[in-house]
C-alpha cells in the first residue's frame, strides 16, 4: 500500500466506525445546537448587533463541538489496545495522523454544514451572499482546527485528566486560526468583500495551516512511538 491508500484506509476506518455508532457525531451536533440556542439569551437575537458578531458566535460553536469530535479521535482506539495495534501495523505515523485528521475533518465539516443554516434561520442572517469565499474560509480554518486538535489528541490520549488537558492545550493554540476565521466570517456574512488589510487574516489562516500541518506530520512519530 502506498502512502495515499494508507491514509485513506485509516480515514475510512474511522468514518465507518463513527457512522456505525454515531456516538461523538450525535453528541457534537446536539451540543452545537444547544450553544446556538444559548446565544439567543446572551445577546438580543433580533438586533443588528448579532450581524456584527456572527462570525465570532459561529466559530465558538464550531470550535466547541469540534473539541468533542477531536477528543474521540485517538481516545476511540484505547479500548482493546487498538492504538498499539495501529502503531504496530505497517502504516507510517504520518499516514495514521493524516487519516485520522481527514476523518475528523469530514465529521467537523458535516456539523458545520448542519449548523450554518440553523444559525441563519434562528438569527435571520443571510449567510450565503458570498458562498465561494465563505467555503474557502471554512475549509481552511476547519483544517487548521483539525490538525492542531488531532495532534494534541494524540499527545494527550494516554494522560490522566485527558478530558481536561486537551481543551486546555488546544484552545490557546487555536487562537490564530479562530481569530482569522472570526474576522473573515463576520465580514463575509455582513456581505462585504475581503479587501486590503483583511487579506492579512487570509494569509495568516493559510500560513498557520501549512506550518502546523508540516510540524504535525514531522513530529507525530515522536509522539506515538518515541
Amino acid at each position: 500500500m502506498n502512502f495515499l491508500t494508507q491514509t485513506l484506509s485509516v480515514a475510512a476506518k474511522d468514518l465507518r466506525s463513527e457512522f456505525r455508532t454515531k456516538e461523538s457525531f450525535n453528541a457534537a451536533a446536539s451540543f452545537a445546537i444547544v450553544i446556538l440556542l444559548l446565544f439567543s439569551f446572551a445577546v438580543d437575537p433580533t438586533s443588528d448587533q448579532i450581524r456584527e458578531m456572527s462570525g465570532g458566535l459561529l466559530w465558538i460553536v464550531y470550535s466547541f463541538s469540534a473539541a468533542l469530535i477531536l477528543n474521540r479521535s485517538f481516545a476511540r482506539e484505547l479500548p482493546n489496545d487498538c492504538l498499539d495495534a495501529l502503531i504496530a501495523s505497517p502504516v507510517s505515523g504520518a499516514a495514521l495522523f493524516l487519516g485520522k485528521a481527514l476523518a475528523s475533518f469530514v465529521l467537523i465539516l458535516l456539523i458545520e454544514a448542519l449548523c450554518l443554516p440553523v444559525f441563519g434561520i434562528f438569527y435571520d442572517l443571510n449567510w450565503a451572499t458570498q458562498p465561494a469565499w465563505l467555503a474557502l474560509v471554512v475549509l481552511l480554518a476547519t483544517w487548521g482546527m483539525t490538525v492542531i486538535g488531532t495532534m494534541f489528541s494524540a499527545l494527550t490520549v494516554n494522560l490522566r485528566l485527558r478530558e481536561i488537558m486537551l481543551p486546555m492545550l488546544v484552545y490557546p493554540m487555536l487562537i490564530p486560526t479562530l481569530m482569522a476565521a472570526m474576522q473573515l466570517t463576520t465580514l463575509l456574512i455582513a456581505g462585504q468583500a475581503i479587501a486590503g488589510d483583511d487579506f492579512v487574516w487570509l494569509r495568516l489562516l493559510i500560513g498557520v495551516d501549512i506550518i502546523f500541518t508540516a510540524l504535525a506530520v514531522a513530529l507525530i512519530e515522536v509522539v506515538l512511538v518515541g
Partner: peptide, 26 residues
Amino acid sequence: MLRRAVDEPTTRARFAAVFGAFAFTT
C-alpha cells in the same frame, strides 16, 4: 501544565519538546 500531567520523565520530555515546537510559532 502539560509537563505536570505526564509522570514518566522520557515521555514528559518528548511531549514537552513537541508542544514547544508548536508553541514557538506564537
